[in-house]
Design a protein around this nucleic acid. Sequence first.
DNA 1: GTCTATACGATGATAGAC
DNA 2: GTCTATCATCGTATAGAC
Lengths: 230, 230
Amino acid sequence: MNRVATKEDGDGGRCQSGTKTRILDAAERIFTDKGFRGTSLRELTAEARVNIAAVNYHFGSKEALLQAVLERRLVPLKKVQRNRLEMIRKNAQAASVRPSVHGALHAFFGPMISLHDSGQAADGFIRFLGQSFSEQSDTISETFLRHIEPVQILLFDILAEALPHMSHDCLSWRLNFALGSMIHSMSMDHFPSLLPNMVPSISYATMTRCMLDFIAAGLEAPCAQYPSPG
Amino acid sequence: MNRVATKEDGDGGRCQSGTKTRILDAAERIFTDKGFRGTSLRELTAEARVNIAAVNYHFGSKEALLQAVLERRLVPLKKVQRNRLEMIRKNAQAASVRPSVHGALHAFFGPMISLHDSGQAADGFIRFLGQSFSEQSDTISETFLRHIEPVQILLFDILAEALPHMSHDCLSWRLNFALGSMIHSMSMDHFPSLLPNMVPSISYATMTRCMLDFIAAGLEAPCAQYPSPG
DNA sequence: GTCTATACGATGATAGAC
DNA sequence: GTCTATCATCGTATAGAC
């Protein structure tokens, strides 16, 4: 039996019955709506039209299922991010100029928004991603670390080139603030307007541009707390 | 029997046995460490040396206990924030100048950090606050909305005075980004260094100054997405 | 009024039949 | 691979002792 290797079932193309895919799709949908801990395996398996024990058989545990749901989107996402970031770096080196802060940020944050706005099944995944960020689970933390950290180090290095006068400590903190802005914005849909009558009916693309302006200005600001590098 | 009214037991001074206080203290401690959903009532009541049913008797439910834990710190916190913000506004009006962005931000964020650095029992509450922000619960969302929104509207109004050229839509978004930075930083302790070898051994006061620089610059940046107010 | 012991339904997980 | 039966544990509810 040949490997198909094209079906996105998270099983490397070995799946036959589509059970894993149905579970993954249902999980992504319900987790986004009700949250990971707010979703019971019984409800999830009913929605996916599989047996209750199927999740534990195919994934090992409910938490491992969450990890699988994350990785199915995270792996292609980080690949796009890495390619774009490396292109930013290459182009800057070729032109013998410093990379721009805005360009680096756009290479990093852009693919996330495209994923959201793409209209495919990945819709809502960004919201789900933002929620998962605050899951208190070592497994999930490690999943994020494993997939996102390398890309983030790349972003950090490019930003360090773009901002040569800034100490690495300060840049680390600020990159973290920037991440917080994005994560919060992504998961904000479920937090009913913490801001006074905020306009929710806006495209993610517009919000992203607004966010990049905000973050870029924050990153480029003079730093009074960490005057010396190291 | 006279009211003592000084004991911080969350019961208006009517408590005698200290059961409620012990539950609140234990809850704040364990919730901070293991998260709300990661803490069982059995473990919590064992730590507080009370009966399992005590939580439901005194608070009604586990979720209502979380609400009580939050409100015990949130109520005095928002009072300090409101006073400081109103003083900022009064001083600016008296001097017939616009309030400063930095001053408004410091009035809002400063008390949170003081609460953390105060060395009293409230230590770690900020971390707990950051985590609670991402709880998917209508009760918790409403608690935040009820206590934080009024202060936030005040902050919004002052910032709108400080930045008269900025549209309210843009300011709303940016204030939300700023909130995200703070929330993420506050709950970051439990997320093991998503950033490459970031310096964790830093005082919250220093981090706060760094954060305020970041946020202030982001808020003050020219806005290309919302050129016209309204 | 407080506190205790106990019971209930639902959950995530697992073992074994098919 | 799939299913049923079963388990320990969870949050919650309540009756009754002090």
